[in-house]
Design a protein around this nucleic acid. Sequence first.
DNA 1: CCAGGGTGCTTAACCGATTGACCGTCCGAA
DNA 2: TTCGGACGGTCAATCGGTTAAGCACCCTGG
Lengths: 346, 346
Amino acid sequence: MRDKRPTISDIAKAAGVSTGAVSYALNGRPGVSETTRRRVMDIADRLGWVPSSAARSLSDGRANAIGLVVDRPARELGVEPFFVQLIAGIQDALADGPTALLLQVTDDATAELEAYRRWWAGRRVDGVLLADLRADDPRVDLVRELGLPTVVLAEPVLPDLPCVWTDDESAVAEVVEYLVALGHRRIVRVAGPDTFVHTRIRSKAFTEAAARLGLRDARAVHADYSDEAAARVTRRVLTGAEPPTAMVFDNDVMAVSALAVAHELGIPVPDRLSIVAWDDSALCRLVRPALTAVRRPIAERGATAVRLLLDVIGGGEPRHVKTSDPELVPRSSTGPVSDQALSPRR
Amino acid sequence: MRDKRPTISDIAKAAGVSTGAVSYALNGRPGVSETTRRRVMDIADRLGWVPSSAARSLSDGRANAIGLVVDRPARELGVEPFFVQLIAGIQDALADGPTALLLQVTDDATAELEAYRRWWAGRRVDGVLLADLRADDPRVDLVRELGLPTVVLAEPVLPDLPCVWTDDESAVAEVVEYLVALGHRRIVRVAGPDTFVHTRIRSKAFTEAAARLGLRDARAVHADYSDEAAARVTRRVLTGAEPPTAMVFDNDVMAVSALAVAHELGIPVPDRLSIVAWDDSALCRLVRPALTAVRRPIAERGATAVRLLLDVIGGGEPRHVKTSDPELVPRSSTGPVSDQALSPRR
DNA sequence: CCAGGGTGCTTAACCGATTGACCGTCCGAA
DNA sequence: TTCGGACGGTCAATCGGTTAAGCACCCTGG
């Protein structure tokens, strides 16, 4: 069976006009009569014509695709719903346009840089999305150097690149206030790596909120988002001197992992330990006790980022956009401080 | 700043030869001297040249991309690690080639068909991967009609399309034997929708294994992979007459959901109920008790499928490929039947 | 000395679409 | 009657590669 994907010259032949006329007709540009336009469009429809993206790219210089590189070990990826939700949101914004999503999953920062370079030089994408911004992120320099249209999923820390962000700061404050209202004073935050911009921002907000509320025993420790690291850290914290009565985790996986550790140590949740997860997910809903979590509008963020990127690609001004605010979803893993938890055990 | 992405004509100018010569040189074809070739390649390197994928596609007819449509509601997606693992495997096989992955996430079967049509007609992809095969799947007819190179992630039920599959049948048998060895006789399987080919295959294997081992009380009920449906079904089954002592779930989310239900009903796991999950994941590892699960080589399957697809695109013969076998990973959610569980409560 | 055959390169057509330049035809106005 | 536009097209260049065909040049053998 021969390839029967029609081209405009097939249409031109069928309509008895030149390919130029067909192009004008199909793109709704002046230069052809209404009669001819209708005839051409009917034929195109009948033949199931779809413009060759390669040909179009070549002549108008647009790839009609945007790129996303997910730089995270596959194992971790499977667990965390973050990227999947992000991608769902991206697709939502892309759904009825001609633009496609090019995805690369890698576990190597150099490969990520290389991907951007290849995509841009090979004209495969018109722009890219940058997730998980780090301090002094080399990707930022790269996209600047390349002149590659970019939208960054991060707080507006870069003046020249458009950022799409969620107000984590106030959410952190809200969580701390919520815990304090429940009577907690010894709160430990298990943060992600300090290299991430959002980690620093949350840390700063955490420290400030603690100071404002007069908590002297609030502190942060770092882990790498994995359940193993979280388990290690949690065990150390809970078996150390002056164990906290509440812990806040920077993702859902670590929180669930901590839940298991508490279970092993015979520490009842929430009676002697309250747990809050960052990023809500089915994971949080499904475990027992179900986890209190901060739900961020991740899909919305992806969609917003795409719209902004398409705008920038189209020549729009780069600007920062804030999404709707995170929401604290209280479930069964948080509760008032019990007398038992407050009294130092001996 | 002007666009500085170089083309072969930039290279040609710099090297003092024609673009044709440059093309021969860069593609390792005869027709240029070794000296010229080296000079051209050095210049290309220095300029950071990458071939324009559009131009290449246009002249050789290859898009250098493959497509994957994920047709699943975003909510569900976030939970199940299946697709993410699949994508990770796909990327692995794609990593050092020129081929990219085009991803579409949708929750609408018609949109999926439309995507294949558009991608193929628009020459955006050279081939596609089909996941979650259903009985009488309309996608199969479509790819046949289009002549679109395809690899199906399913048991080899289609003679003309290459399939990449995992031996679920023997895994089902293994699970049943394992449970029977622990003393279980009343086993309920909570399956996915019967429209999926793999559901039917597992169901058949389950029935056969039960018959072979003389279980009269083995039965299957259907759910839709969601935690809600699983909770509903599990509650009904566990509170009904002759509740099972073991349940096997078709994915991890449903198994975790059942764990929560058992917890609520005060049914200890594994003392009075054993639970087995299909598809291992961090979810299974992190909950307490940790779930016994059947681990399938999902990433391997994705990688194998890609290699097969690239082969088919390159003109290779379509053939069926079996991946390595699933593996039963025993954890704490399964155990011997207790006397308590066997005695009908009254 | 010349035919024959590699080398090593250039030329030009081609892939499928877009688009500026150009060109008949017809109509209305002067 | 003739000139000027508007209308409705065609033509050809262009995007960045690939590749068949052609063409100098040099070496070799007879």
